[in-house]
Design a protein around this nucleic acid. Sequence first.
DNA 1: CTTCACTATGTCAGTTCTTACATAGATGTA
DNA 2: TACATCTATGTAAGAACTGACATAGTGAAG
Lengths: 187, 187
Amino acid sequence: MSSTIPTLGFAILSVLARADSTGYEIAGRMRNPVARFWTASHSQIHADLRRLLDSGLVGYTTAPGPGPQEKKIYSITAEGLDALREWVTEPPRPQPERDELVLKTYAAWLADPAALIAMFRTALREHEGRLAEYEAAWASVEEEAPAFGTSRFGNMAALRCGLTYERHRADWCRWMIDQLSSSLKPS
Amino acid sequence: MSSTIPTLGFAILSVLARADSTGYEIAGRMRNPVARFWTASHSQIHADLRRLLDSGLVGYTTAPGPGPQEKKIYSITAEGLDALREWVTEPPRPQPERDELVLKTYAAWLADPAALIAMFRTALREHEGRLAEYEAAWASVEEEAPAFGTSRFGNMAALRCGLTYERHRADWCRWMIDQLSSSLKPS
DNA sequence: CTTCACTATGTCAGTTCTTACATAGATGTA
DNA sequence: TACATCTATGTAAGAACTGACATAGTGAAG
């Protein structure tokens, strides 16, 4: 019957529930710090928007665009909002856990400690950078204390996860660097 | 030229660097707590083993198997070990961050708080379960203090990441439940 | 004045991966 | 005895996704 909507479809609906957007804007919003947890290329977003449109979960109005095509401003429909609301509380299906840095760590015993330290230092810098970003955003969102029922609540909750994730990650990288350093000078 | 090896290929090599295994066993080992960070279905593993074989990174010997085909015991070759060693310290490419629970959180403001609390309680129980598993494994690995250069070091380092990840996750779930609870009784 | 980045849509080829199917012996359970 | 589960390999269809290509206006930097 109704073709199942992939998770990316719900990610798109989640963005449109906040503001009407073009496909291009949706891709941009999903690259934004507080919504970085389900990204996709614009080509895939266009494909999925088409499917959501066929299912009646989104609609659009056109406006003159920069390229040869007209620009399409998508918005979520009542049916789309219903589908999104229903999906939100369904238990998330177990995901394939995939983490390249941890995989490399699993095989780290084969490699050169000094090179590994360099790699983890780079990773640490990235995590610390994002952590600083998130902490700045957190300061302003905590002050505001957004109420449940507003989209700001969703932003805050997702941001909180990103914040503690980066903290955990940075801590782990520091621990790795420590371990690898002490393996260099066994003294 | 030399066809690029997908990340799953290196995950397979990482397992074979520890012990010779059949394709079936590789899938099982990747479902094991300390190597849960790059899982795949056996059909994909068979496909990738074929490619690794064509590239000369693995070899195999046969033994009588249960089914109609013979069982193949794969082992990593010297070339495979070289390729793995080289890959380990290359900077990991930025991955698509995908997390269904956080996506649902991002859209949580649209849903029923009570249903959300139930969902997060389920997630919390899962994280706490894995945390207990990891903590038990950690106790024994810490005692042993495996040296760099042995595969146990890789196990320990990956386990450490899993441990602090589950801790962060469980903390966040508890925070979410708190937030949602206080939105129910505004007192 | 040229070049680059940004906005904006879309196609297409190819890769990665999942799910279901197919086969079949051994082992344990009801 | 019957049935499920584990071991073990593989195929095949299709979903999901990436990256390159194609087009084209605006605005900023050099």
